[in-house]
């Protein structure tokens, strides 16, 4: 039998590695062309940032609809726009506020720009992918909802979310869980009604409708008034598309939007790895235990020979 030396072992390893890489590459190519793209008739919201005046009626409506705790300050108190958390960043969503309005002073723009932040309800949500107790669900209506009774509070979804949306009930000592916007699914969306914030907005900043119709509307608004908007519908393609989409007159990277997220759903980046996990967990232990026993058997036999 051919003796296995280090050189031949490495050679074999290289060839095997190349084969695995080739298989991996071809799989990735297939994954690249196959996108779920969302439920065909799912609903969405088109947010026209050029219309927002920062009145925070949406925040008040969300608080009431979701039965959230009393806010720290009145909803007509503009001082919240100046609040800064660590890193000089504006307010974000919390366990007490599933939506917040941020103010941006854009150089050269006559008035400040206001940006409403809430869950974007991704077509293929990273929070859902990351959750190991399957608490999350993307409903055919378009909402990303979650079952707080199974949430174990691991906060992986908070790390996975590319928009930093899920918040955590740090105030709860006994059963802290993740908290976020559910697009008013329980009380409104599943009955065909728009989210409370959309209905409350005096300026009709938000348009509620089928996502595919909203996309047409968004592009029509841009082509009707090309000087009033940047030619980008944020959320059309970002991370595989989101139910909430945005129009702006200021480039999105200037007003806190991440424009480097790419168009692939977050799951595409981990699909290959996650597919390997069951194999690693089931085959590898048996395989390496076998190797271990084999090499030990040689030693054991040798010991037996020495003894006899």
């Amino acid at each position: 039998m051919k003796k296995l030396n280090r050189r031949s072992f490495l050679k074999g390893g290289l060839a095997g590695g190349a084969a695995i890489a080739a298989v991996g590459a071809s799989k990735q190519a297939v994954a690249g062309t196959h996108n779920f793209g969302g439920y065909p008739d799912s609903m969405g919201v088109l947010v026209d940032l050029t219309k927002c005046v920062g009145c925070r009626t949406c925040e008040a409506a969300c608080n009431k609809e979701q039965d959230l705790p009393e806010p720290d300050k009145a909803f007509d108190d503009p001082s919240v726009f100046e609040e800064r958390r660590e890193g000089g960043l504006p307010r974000r969503t919390t366990e007490k506020a599933y939506t917040v309005v941020q103010k941006y002073d854009v150089p050269g723009r006559e008035h400040p720009l206001f940006r409403k932040v809430q869950c974007n309800h991704c077509n293929e949500p990273a929070c859902l992918t990351s959750c190991f107790v399957n608490a999350y669900k993307k409903t055919p209506e378009g909402a990303v909802i979650y079952d707080k009774t199974v949430c174990v509070g691991c906060r992986t979804c908070m790390v996975a979310c590319p928009f930093y949306i899920p918040a955590y009930s740090y105030s709860s000592a006994i059963n802290p869980v993740v908290k976020k916007c559910i697009m008013c699914y329980d009380t409104r969306l599943k009955f065909g009604r728009p989210p409370a914030c959309v209905e409350a907005c005096p300026q009709e900043v938000m348009t509620f409708g089928k996502r595919k119709d909203l996309l047409k509307l968004a592009h029509q608004r841009i082509s009707d008034k090309p000087d009033a908007y940047v030619d980008h519908v944020y959320g059309e393609n970002e991370v595989g598309g989101t139910a909430w989409m945005y129009l702006s007159d200021v480039p999105f990277d200037k007003i806190g939007y991440d424009t480097h997220l790419g168009t692939q759903p977050i799951i595409s980046y981990v699909k290959e790895f996650l597919g390997m996990v069951p194999m690693v967990l089931t085959i590898w232990p048996a395989l390496f235990t076998g190797f271990h026993l084999l090499s030990n058997r040689k030693d054991a036999l040798k010991n037996d020979d020495n003894k006899s």
């Binding site: 720290d72 958390r85 660590e86 974000r92 366990e95 918040a167 105030s171």
Partner: peptide, 22 residues
């Protein structure tokens, strides 16, 4: 009442909370 303003304004807190981060 809806805006938690006027006579419904929340009592000021000693320190502002900024919960919700990782």
């Amino acid at each position: 009442a809806f805006f938690h303003s006027g006579k419904y304004t929340p009592a000021p807190k000693a320190s502002a909370e900024h919960g919700g981060g990782h």
